[in-house]
Nucleic acid binder design. Structure first.
Lengths: 160, 160
DNA sequence: GTCGATATGTTATACAATTACACGAGGTAG
DNA sequence: CTACCTCGTGTAATTGTATAACATATCGAC
């Protein structure tokens, strides 16, 4: 499991910006940004890759912030429910959202070689999916798009 | 976990058609459509819903076709790899593909109330996703779209 | 007949997620 | 003030999902 995103960037300020954005959003919406929740988001932002719940739990454990699975899962549920993180179903792992606050239908690009994950924004509107769904009489509340393939780095190692 | 698809249809002939299609495709491509593999596809087609690997394993076990997890997982891997079935990541479950042989990017409509799953074909070409991906230098090999919401039946029970 | 490739059988284990219940801090109505 | 409600956390135990590793079997090519 390697980095989220294939491009370089100012990682330090990216963490700070995301954290304070989350803090602001919580304040505005009366949500409790508790130490565990904050720390888990921090970890996800800092590692900048998709992390399994137990990986996160291990880190929490060494910091004395909780040692049992529900601690991690509850924090992750909170972050995912409020748009601060996403679950990557294909990996059973979690990653910080790269643009919290904006409503979007993200698409994840998962490298099958190095397991890095990039969150891309799609041109596909929720409406395009909705059109398909309505044809079946289905009402979509949430959609997930995950693509598997090769990231730029791994393409050079393993050419077509 | 309830039915795949929200509409009624001639289920009996649908099973037969899919099975013989799979058989044909295997023959054409030099794949071995072994008893376990055939039986698992049969089960998926017959149940016509998303089944967990261990649910399938239980059925295999009562039939003496294998009793350990790898038996089920290997058969499922085969079916998924060759386009006869899909994995529903959100449910950690598997469902028979409703149009094997055709290359397509399916979209799954998953009801959060009754867990029924419908496989819809999208207007979204693999190319639309590919465009987004190429912007990141990523090469997509496989894409999964899963939507969560309410199926027609459950909408009437639980109105907006 | 030996070899390589493919499929299956089996044991054990790793990884992921949830249930259930106890505890504690903060607000608020009486 | 305290009784109560809500929300978040602590912890134990369990259930569910998936894979690793190795043995065995079958078939076809040479």
């Amino acid at each position: 499991m390697d980095p989220v995103g294939f491009a370089h960037h100012d990682h330090h300020s990216c963490i700070a910006a995301n954290l304070s954005a989350a803090e602001q959003i919580c304040q505005d919406n009366g949500l409790q940004f508790t130490p565990v929740r904050r720390r888990v988001l921090e970890i996800l932002l800092h590692e900048h890759r998709a992390l399994g719940a137990y990986e996160i739990l291990d880190m929490l454990r060494t910091e004395g912030l909780g040692s049992q699975p529900p601690v991690a899962y509850r924090a992750l549920d909170f972050l995912v429910s409020n748009g601060f993180a996403h679950k990557i179903e294909h990996l059973n792992a979690f990653a910080a959202c790269v643009h919290p606050g904006h409503s979007h239908t993200p698409m994840f690009l998962i490298c099958r070689a190095c397991n890095s994950v990039a969150e891309a924004t799609t041109q596909i509107s929720a409406d395009t999916l909705g059109k398909t769904a309505r044809a079946e009489g289905f009402r979509i509340e949430k959609a997930v798009i995950e693509a598997e393939g090769l990231c730029p780095a791994c393409q050079t190692k393993e050419p077509a």
